[in-house]
Design a protein around this nucleic acid. Structure first.
Lengths: 186, 186
DNA sequence: AAGGCCATGTAAGTAGTTACATGATTGA
DNA sequence: TCAATCATGTAACTACTTACATGGCCTT
């Protein structure tokens, strides 16, 4: 049950309408928890019904913009969730699975896929690095200046950077390994 | 649609019954694609109906063991899937999300959670390292001896090791960072 | 008044999770 | 024959995805 809490977080950072939230889920929050507009609208409905958020009073008609803000109940629910015990989710990755399958049925077409993934992960890594340079310039230590919020944001970003770095390095090794295998067969 | 292909891979490695598959999904394959027995039985039914696998002839009654093996159609479907274009899944991690939420509502209870996750990831990392020592002793190069299958298996395992290493390192940094924040508030 | 875009939604389908049900076999 | 365990399944629910529908507003 992460989506409602992702939305609460986003709305606390800034009250928004559904469409604005959707856009913010295409970057920022969405970097580690993606969601489509359908999910978001549905969830906004549930959260409002549950009394965790509230639409700012406006004539609510169909094609009309609706802005939401978080109620105290929503904030305390989010606080509770942050400290709640949750087991780490096991890895669930189709690409690793495909390599395992390739060990049985052969690697045909796989090298192209690895290349594609490598390009994409490099792109994402660059994007993160740019954000880091923009939002957290120089200060490797982030040494105590500016509130804890920034420090946490940087920590999350560094998580993303390290993850993409892992993928890039692993893919480079995998591609080399796969390429080095061909000679056996020719 | 990864589960059917995970099952096909497992069945090609060794024909099995539903329960045996379930056990194998608790380790091995399950390290990067987990599944419960309910999912597995349902999917076995679909795969059989689709003509991708077949139950070895036995009087099929309810509590009776049923062994499956992969048909040619199943093997070629798996081959197709290995080379198929699939975009990398974006990161989707509740823990990173919780840090982001903590930047807004405070870090109460979070340090305990980070410790718990650290313990769990260290345990998983150790498990992987033991498997590596057992199945791929010494030969860092895995230099051409024994088929490509082993090489691919090792590659997948090294992926798991690198991922768990990432988590351990990131969590250590996060815990240190969070700890260093307290003084501001006392 | 027509087309494009902003904004909110509904509907249907797939995948995964949780709880429970049922039959077969074996050993005390 | 009772309990435990092996083995296969059903049912109900939640989360996510894909495709489509509807209304309002602005420009030409």
């Amino acid at each position: 049950m992460s989506l409602p809490h992702a939305i609460l977080t986003a709305l606390l950072e800034r009250p928004s309408s559904g469409l604005e939230l959707t856009r913010r889920f295409d970057r920022s929050i969405g970097y580690f928890w993606s969601a489509t507009h359908q999910q978001i609208y549905r969830e906004l409905g549930k959260l409002e019904q549950g009394g965790l958020i509230e639409a700012v009073p406006q004539p609510p008609s169909r094609g009309q913009r609706k802005e939401y803000l978080v109620l105290p109940a929503g904030r305390s629910e989010l606080t509770r969730w942050v400290g709640q015990a949750q087991d780490p989710k096991p890895i669930r990755d189709p690409l690793l699975l495909r390599l395992r399958a390739a060990a049985v049925v052969g690697t045909e077409g796989l090298d192209v896929e690895l290349q594609r993934h490598l390009v994409e992960h490099r792109r994402q890594l660059d994007e993160y690095l740019e954000i880091e340079q923009r939002d957290f310039p120089a200060g490797g230590g982030s040494g105590g200046r500016s509130g804890g919020g920034d420090r946490l944001h940087h920590l999350v970003l560094k998580g993303g950077i390290a993850l993409e770095t892992f993928w890039v390095e692993w893919l480079v090794e995998a591609i080399a390994d796969l390429g080095g295998e061909r000679p056996e067969r020719s």
